[in-house]
Nucleic acid binder design. Structure first.
Lengths: 121, 121
DNA sequence: CCTATAATTCGCCAAATGACGAATTATAAT
DNA sequence: ATTATAATTCGTCATTTGGCGAATTATAGG
């Protein structure tokens, strides 16, 4: 029950679901997610902690950047089946589509350039 | 996105998940759920509203009693696939098993007798 | 070594959530 | 009609949650 509830709670926030959907194509570092979600880094960081606690994402460190990716096939089945449910339910969702477009432009500019831009604010 | 989030939020509370699991075998009236969950009727009522809003349950009125049952095959696929995920993830869960046992004794005593017992408190 | 910076942790606040009891509504029974 | 009662709605409260900025940590680069 514990893991299941962690997953369900993690999925009960729209921002986190949008982040998961964004991670579906490729891994992302925090500053890229910040740009997508238009939230403070500290807020995104907290969301990522919730998602990792639920085993929905994994992370790896590369220099100063931390990259998050979707849980892989090594994840518990509750996680994998949960994600399957999410994808099926959000197929064609307009919000997710918008995010996908926005992501493309975020990915076009390099990671360094993106972080610079954020510091200017 | 809207319905999906309603479902995800509805599933993000352990009491509600337990109620859903209890409904898997048979429909239940509110007083039976009150007995199972050991919560105030008003609290259970609110939970049921959340579950119905998410389309996870339907209800029917019979006299003074309102019976809730799991969503059937007419429900949106997000609901059905969500429930499939729940069942798969909670298979063998000890809390759900305990509830199942408790439910049996609740079902043994008639509905009227049960409500009387609650009024005594 | 020292500075810059990507990310996290911490402390705080506003909003949402889950709980209860009291009041209300609707139905059954006297 | 009046009373009893199953369930809901309402008002209130404590806890949790999601957000931010400031402080902290860890790594890259001058």
């Amino acid at each position: 029950m514990r893991l299941f509830m962690d997953i369900a709670k993690a999925l009960a926030d729209e921002t986190r679901v949008r982040i998961l959907a964004a991670l579906r194509r490729q891994e992302l570092c925090v500053c890229q997610i910040v740009e997508l979600a238009q939230l403070a880094p500290s807020t995104v960081s907290k969301h990522m902690t919730v998602l990792r606690q639920a085993r929905l994402v994994d992370s790896r460190k590369e220099g100063r950047w931390i990259y998050y990716r979707l849980a892989d096939t090594a994840a518990p089945s509750a996680v994998q089946e949960g994600l399957t449910w999410v994808w099926a339910s959000l197929r064609g969702d307009s919000r997710i589509k918008e995010d996908k477009k926005k992501l493309q432009s975020i990915l076009k500019m390099g990671t360094e350039q993106l972080c610079k831009k954020q510091n200017q604010r």
